[in-house]
Design a protein around this nucleic acid. Sequence first.
DNA 1: TATTGTTATACTCTATAACTATA
DNA 2: TATAGTTATAGAGTATAACAATA
Lengths: 166, 166
Amino acid sequence: MAEKAQYEELIRQFSAFGAVKREMGRLLPADCPGGSAAVLTLLGRHGDMRMSKLAELLAVDMSVTSRHVAHVAERGWIERSPDPADKRSRILRLTTSGQGRLDEIADRTSQMLAHRLSDWSDDEVGQLTRLMARLRASFDDCRAPAARPPAPSGDEQSTRTPAITT
Amino acid sequence: MAEKAQYEELIRQFSAFGAVKREMGRLLPADCPGGSAAVLTLLGRHGDMRMSKLAELLAVDMSVTSRHVAHVAERGWIERSPDPADKRSRILRLTTSGQGRLDEIADRTSQMLAHRLSDWSDDEVGQLTRLMARLRASFDDCRAPAARPPAPSGDEQSTRTPAITT
DNA sequence: TATTGTTATACTCTATAACTATA
DNA sequence: TATAGTTATAGAGTATAACAATA
């Protein structure tokens, strides 16, 4: 358990991280903004999946996912096939064209990082990756533990807006 | 120097970090969005400063800084006094009210981190903080590097993508 | 002519809510 | 009634460009 000053310093780094994120975004192709790149990356990483699964991996609302997916589908980078097991669902699949786009993006961003982090050791890059993954996990875990959050309004975090309750 | 796969994994963590950032943003007061909180934090941390200095610390365009500053000034959290040395400039200063607001925000965010990172050691929090600070520095440094990186030898126009050929 | 700061405009990302079509 | 996905709307953040006042 760290001290308050340490948390405040960490929070400042969180805030400053936006500059890094924007710098990365600048080298994306004009027709492939960050949201589209994230969709391609996750489909390339985890293979075919449904909208709901993708929304969970993106950690955004399904409505947001739907827009990003529509954008990449319009450009032919993914296909949406009906799910035979559930006709409400759609299975997302990377096309050959989408794979090419993904490769291009991965090349650009990797080269950029290789340049920017040229004086980082292999181990340091790994450390940052691990710590950020754990950070994300620590935030995800706090969904159901019996702690005492300051605002006990009793709602579960979901990837989508609740349905109407009438 | 790390391998490409390692960079790609790091990039995925960058993308996923958005969820953490949004989670933090949710506990900010309704009248104090992230941009305002950042202004208060930096003024509290570094003391009085001019717009241009604040823009540099925020790592955003001055036009963006101007909007954030206007927002907090309207609420009486900072004061903008004319700079006697340069009448184009304005000196920004945290008011008592603004300091109170800042304390409240720092309390909330620190408590939240203390809760989420309750199983992190003091040293781990420090490591993440240091690595993120270094990451930011590594990006800042690459503004005018006269060095010749090994990968790109003759290819230009990596940042700017031509318009879509409809 | 250059710099400091402001404002207008546009674009991206996000969440909420309402809607459809299935289950 | 509940779930999967879509769409409409609104809010926050950002960058570019045009502008005013001053250097």
